[in-house]
Structures are given as C-alpha cells and as structure tokens.
Design a binder for these strands. Structure first.
Lengths: 339, 339
DNA sequence: CTGAAAGCGCTTACAG
DNA sequence: CTGAAAGCGCTTACAG
C-alpha cells in the first residue's frame, strides 16, 4: 500500500455502487442506511483500506476533533498525572489531545493562545501560571478555553481547588503538631515572581499563622524558582546555612517538598522528629518518599472530567457566562508530620 | 470578535487589494513578494485578525504539521520526561504534538496505529511495550513511524539504548560491591508478560550473573505488573515475607526502584548497608530519593532529537531502508550502592 | 433511504 | 512579481 494513493469516499462509493453521500452516511452514522447497503459499503472500505481524511472533514464542518492541553512543564509529576487523566477522559469522549508547554516565561501563554496552531483545535485547556498575564483578556479571539487552577478572573470557565483554604488547613495541621517556626517554600511577595498558586497558598499560610498568633517572618518565606525539586533542595540548603531556626516546612507543591526532604536528609535533620514537612497535590511519589508526605489531595480524574465538560459546553454555547467548578480537597496526613 | 465569522484569505486579499494567491505567498513566505505589498497584506491580516485555516492547508498539501507521540503511561516520570523533550524538540522544528496512551494492553498499540485519527498526523513516535505485538507489520498502511526503545525488528526506524548491555553493567556493579543474592525486579520468563525491555534487561542481568559464576535463582526474578512504584513495593514486601534471602535488588526502571526503596525502608532494611538497590533511566527523582539511586542514565534530549530526525527523514523518503540509532548510556553510581 | 451539486479555505500549476 | 482557475476530500442543504 505504501506509495499507492489513499482511497477516498469517491473510490469507496464507486466500488460499492453507491454515491459518496451514502458512504458518508455510513461513516458518520448519523442517518439510517439500509443494512445491505451498509454491508456493501463496509466491504468496500475494508478492501480499499479506507480512512476518512480528517482535514477534509475538519474543513467542511469546522471542527477538528482535537483539543489542546497547555501545561507549564510536562516533566513535572503533577503535570504528568493531570495530562494522563485529561488524555484518558478526552479519548473516552472521542477527542484527540495536542500538548503544549508554556514554560516559565509568562509571555508563552499569550503567544501560544494567539498562535496559528491553536486554531486547528476545537478548544484549549490551560493550566496557567500567572494571574494577570493569563491571556484571558484575548478570550474573544480564542477557541473555547477552560482554565485549571486558581486565577482571579471571571472571563473564562475554570476548574479550581480552593488553594488558600487548603494551604491554611495544612499549615494549621503543622501548628497543631507543635510547630511555631514554619518555613513556606513557594511563597513570594515580589509581584514579578508571584503566581496564582504562590499568592493564594502564601495567603492561606499566613491566615493560619495569624489565627495562631504567630508573627510571620520574611526570612522563612522562600520562593525557589523554578518550582522544581532541585531548586527547593537548594533553597533549604540556603535556609539551613543562614542559621535561621525552623521546626516545619510547608512546601507549596509535592515536587518542592521532595527537594525539602532531600536537603534535610543531607543535613542529618530527621523528619518528623526535628522538622515537620508538608507538600501539596498528592502526587504518587508523596506516598513513597521517606518519610511519606503529608499533603493536600484532590481527585485529578474529577478535575479532568469537569474541565472537559466545561469545554464541551463552551464549544456549543460560545457566549454563555463563565462558569466555575470547585473540586474538593482533603488533608492527607502521613509520616512526614508524625502521624 | 466572538461569533463574528473568521476572516479568510479572500477577505484579506480584498482589503489589501491583491489576489488570494498573493496573500498565500506572504503567509507561506516561499515566494518573494514586493515589500510594499507585504506590508499592505500584513496590515490587512492584523486588522482582520487573520489566522490561516490549517484544515484547509492540510487538505490541500496533504500535511497537517502534527505528529503523534504514543507512550504506555503518561503519568510515569520516565514518560513525562521523554514527552517533555519530544515536545520541546518538535516545537523547535515547527511541529505540533498529539499524545496517545497505549496503556498496558498490547492490543492498544495496533488499534491506535490503525485508527482513523492517526491519519490526520504526519508521523508517529511510538514507545512500544511488546515485541511481537508492535504493530510494525502494518507499517505499509501507516504514517511514518519511529520507535523509541528496544524492539527486535527491522521494519521501522528506531532509536535504542543497549538495554541488555546496560543491565549487565549495572548488575556487574552490584556484584563488584559484594552482592551475590541479587533480586531482579521486572524480569519475566512468561512470554505472555514479557516485554522488550523486560526480556533484554533480564538477559543482561543473567549475563552478569553467569560471568561471575552465580547460579540464577528463579525466586529472585519477579515481575510486578504493571511496572509501577506501588506494585514494585508490593513485590518486595512479598519477597521479604517469603523468607528468600537477598543482598541486592536490581530494578529494571527507576519507578520500580523507588517502590523497592520504600518497601525496604518499611521493613527496616537499610540501603546500602543491608541491601544494595539500583534503577534504570535516571529520572529526576533518582537523584532525590533516600538514598539517591545508582542507575543507568542516557540523554533523553538526544533521544528526542534522533527520533525526530529519523521521522523527518522518513516523511520525505518513505521507502528508504529502516535506520537504527543507538544512544549511549552510562552507569551512574550513587548512595544506594554505597558509593 | 439515496443522488447531484455546491462549497469549506487553502495552494498548486498555468499564465502573464 | 501577481491573477484566475481548479481541486484537495469531505458534508450540508436540496431534491427525489
């Protein structure tokens, strides 16, 4: 078959002795076709190895059957797990998934959205990093968009977890276990470096401190960029070297927390005996680290389903008001806070 | 703009006072167009928010500018890191990437390849699990395919790492550190469960044992399916419960090795003092586990580049003989074998 | 239940 | 350097 021209509906129609329209009806299955006819057409399709040309279909009906998923860093465990669920759910719903990486640069999100490529897709699921920079103001020129993650805007649909409350809860938890000098890894005052997650989780952390009457210490608020395991390890190395005392570390993602554990182990600090440690996201490694991580968990499969449902609705009702779905979280207590 | 019809080249041409052909020339940039004309056309495109319809272009020139990447499980750290590099390289070369998950079921690979969707793509990069089942025999009816990973066939292009030699080397390493009772996690005799990686890494492990005069013990060859961290942990739990003695564990992926470390820690076995442990792949967590993992590393970015180069060549020369590129590996010694 | 015609938005020869 | 025509392979009205 290599090299031989691909069969078209016209070829199939000729072989089956029907019109192209009938072949189309058989392929799409929207109209009832007489069983004998269906059989003849299917036999012809098999014989010719017919596969519909999706470019042609897409051109005709204006939909490609493909959505894009844009994530900051595909190599991160959290992104990988989220992508896994999104692809699974999308395929169940008959949609193909194209992936894009926005990276650390805020501009990439905007660029990506306005890029030509984006317009071969029927919709976009975006996990944004930045608040203001999120290209949502361009929503008018965009395909349907659903945001995953906390962003303070009401222009597009989004699926959120209440990060601030979750961060407050997990910080309260370490306070309840006796911690007073609690480092926050991922928080930042600098609006240049601030992200939606960073801002909200820092707010939640401070809420808990305030409620407990603990004075925040700027030296304990560290934002290692990018949010990776090695940079978190380096941040804790630095904290230890600085001599600032601490008895707990609240990391704003599990990926960061794994670096925290590594640094503490390197310096001979025992978790949870000397220092309590928590993460956020409940990635698979959070259960298998030494010690296992106390963290915030939520149902990623559910997030994926909600995102695709919102996107699907948006594809049909373009002008409906923006919807927001909140997925519940739970505090998962493990050995890293001495369960 | 929402709801308003998208501008076409015809609209742009009308506004700029040129023919659609000229607009096309400006957009594709293949033919020289007079600077004043270019400027007029570009102004018109901006004004109308023109974006070329890629379905139409795809229909016309037979290429979509999209490739597919099919991996067994997107949530696995190794897959995630590989996808990250593939997407990065593909984007540098102007290609979009569609992702597919083949899962554990061997049939999915075949199904996927023959599925209609596959034909909207210009090529496919596949990380196959099974040897025989890999749908490579269908290569004639397929878009250009490049395999990543060891598969014993010469029908399609592929990028490989010499798994057998690598597995032999790392097993030799633990033998050199004094181990004699070495468990292999991921090896399997059962052809039903055997995969390309499983087969070759088991062969390499046995090569090393034979060279050292150590008799293989079937009770030490365990294949936890699927190849995940929890199943590896459960496998080692079982091994310990069985009472079979061992002084080292050679895991066939880092993901498995992380589960091995977890199980050993749970049972109070110290690594490397009581048991040596090794992995394969050098994922990021291999550096941050406690202890850090001795493993086999290779350049994933390089793998991605080679795969895309092969695919690109295949897209132009469909009938050229299959090529194979071998990427070098290295033994990375870390604390888990007592460095 | 099926056919003949038209058109989705591009780009490729073919002319000038 | 630019235009007018044709066609990539489908599907959507419009007829019967």
């Amino acid at each position: 078959m290599a090299g031989r021209a691909r069969a078209t509906m016209k070829d199939v129609a000729a072989l089956a002795g029907v019109s192209p329209k009938t072949v189309s009806n058989v392929v799409t299955g929207t109209v009832f076709v007489r069983p004998e006819t269906v059989e003849r057409v299917e036999a012809a399709m098999t014989e010719l190895h017919f596969v519909p040309n999706l470019s042609a279909r897409g051109l005709r009906n204006g939909r490609s059957g493909t959505i894009a998923v844009a994530l900051p860093d595909l190599a991160t465990p959290y992104s990988a797990e989220l992508l896994h669920d999104l692809v699974e759910v999308a395929h169940e719903r008959g949609l193909a998934v194209q992936v894009e990486e926005t990276g650390a640069e805020p501009g990439r999100e905007v660029e990506l959205l306005s890029r030509a490529r984006a317009h071969l897709i029927d919709g976009l699921i975006l996990n944004p990093i930045r608040v203001e920079d999120s290209a949502v103001e361009y929503a008018d020129h965009l395909p349907p968009v659903v945001l995953i993650g906390e962003v303070e805007q009401r222009v597009t649909d989004h699926v959120i977890v209440d990060s601030r409350a979750a961060s407050r809860d997990i910080t309260r938890h370490v306070i309840s276990r006796g911690a007073r000098r609690i480092a926050a890894i991922g928080g930042d005052e600098n609006p240049e470096k601030e992200t939606a997650a960073s801002r909200l989780r820092l707010d939640g952390y401070r809420d808990a401190l305030r409620d407990a009457g603990i004075e925040p210490d700027p030296r304990l608020e560290i934002n290692p960029l990018p949010w990776t395991t090695p940079s978190a390890a380096a941040a804790v190395d630095g904290l230890i070297a600085s001599g600032v005392e601490f008895d707990a570390v609240v990391a704003f993602t599990d990926t960061l927390a794994l670096g925290v554990l590594h640094s503490l182990a390197t310096h001979g600090k025992r978790v949870p005996d000397d220092v309590l440690v928590t993460g956020f996201d409940d990635v698979e490694m959070a259960r298998f680290s030494s010690p296992a991580l106390t963290t915030i968990g939520f149902d990623l499969r559910r997030v994926a389903e909600e995102a695709l449902s919102l996107l699907n609705r948006r594809m049909t009702e373009r002008t409906a008001p923006a919807r927001s779905v909140t997925v519940p979280y739970e505090l998962i207590v493990r050995a890293s806070t001495g369960d």
